[in-house]
């Protein structure tokens, strides 16, 4: 464990210098969005009455929360991981120390987890100020955002360890992350989607996290314990499989 923590410590040391940029993407932009979109478009949606008594702002806040976790996970797992293999090569330096590959991977994922938790806490605080959070259960979004982040990041860690150029990441962003964010229930309920797209949403980890986050912050959208466990298990499966793939990819790259 001390070994894992020493990796986390290095990540935090570096983050001390780079946190400003991340505040923009993981805090300012989502907040702008909640204000710009949630409030203005929300007033039209609320007049439409399709969501019943639920305010649209309240509806998208948990969705945006999960979506922000997805962004953070992508941001911390794509270029940074690729860079540590290809550009700055610090993974190669780390593997020459007593650290094992699993320590390196574990430390970086732990750092991601911290980023996810702090981002989520700030997001919750800000949206609470706009009265968009309606239950103490909202605390439950913390582990959900963390789990979603790992579920998404771990496979991308594996991907970043295997690709030979960074040009794949904009593709991943545009063909996977953005479509997921737009159609996995963040902005509108997925029962409005055509059958095929709905199944794509079911497959995406984001939808499961959105359902759980919404259940936590909005009383009307609660789910049964069994359903919640099902969603969590699905996310955990992504996280577990992703971790296994990442470990294999890292070993292949570092210990040959």
């Amino acid at each position: 464990m001390a070994a894992v923590l020493s990796v986390l410590e290095t990540d935090l040391m570096a983050y001390r210098r780079t946190w400003r940029a991340s505040v923009l993407s993981s805090f300012v932009l989502p907040t702008l969005f909640v204000l710009g979109f949630g409030l203005s478009v929300g007033s039209f949606v609320d007049r439409g009455g399709q969501l019943g008594p639920v305010h649209y702002l309240d509806f998208i806040v948990p969705g945006m929360l999960a979506s922000t976790a997805l962004q953070v996970a992508f941001g911390e797992s794509s270029f940074p991981v690729f860079s540590k293999f290809e550009w700055i090569r610090t993974y190669h330096a780390m593997v020459a120390t007593p650290l094992r590959v699993v320590d390196i991977l574990g430390g970086d994922l732990l750092f991601l987890l911290l980023r996810l938790l702090t981002t989520t806490v700030v997001f919750l605080a800000v949206t609470s100020a706009f009265h968009a959070v309606h239950s103490w259960w909202a605390i439950a979004v913390l582990p959900v955002a963390g789990l979603l982040g790992i579920a998404v990041a771990a496979p991308i860690f594996a991907f970043a360890a295997r690709v030979d150029q960074d040009g794949y990441f904009p593709m991943l962003m545009r063909f996977v992350v953005i479509p997921m964010s737009l159609f996995a229930g963040v902005f509108f309920p997925i029962d409005r989607l055509p059958e095929v797209l709905r199944w794509l949403a079911y497959i995406s980890p984001l939808w499961h996290a959105v359902v759980l986050c919404r259940a936590a912050t909005l009383p009307g959208f609660g789910v049964s314990v069994l359903t919640a466990v099902g969603h969590l298990a699905y996310l955990a499966a992504w996280a577990g499989a992703g971790f296994w793939l990442a470990l294999r990819a890292f070993r292949r790259r570092l210990v040959i």
Partner: peptide
């Protein structure tokens, strides 16, 4: 394979922590 996000000294300290 130095870490450009860390200072010169931090590079040594963080590496020592791995040990």
């Amino acid at each position: 394979s130095l870490d450009p996000e860390l200072s010169v000294k931090e590079n040594l300290v963080s590496y020592a922590r791995f040990f």
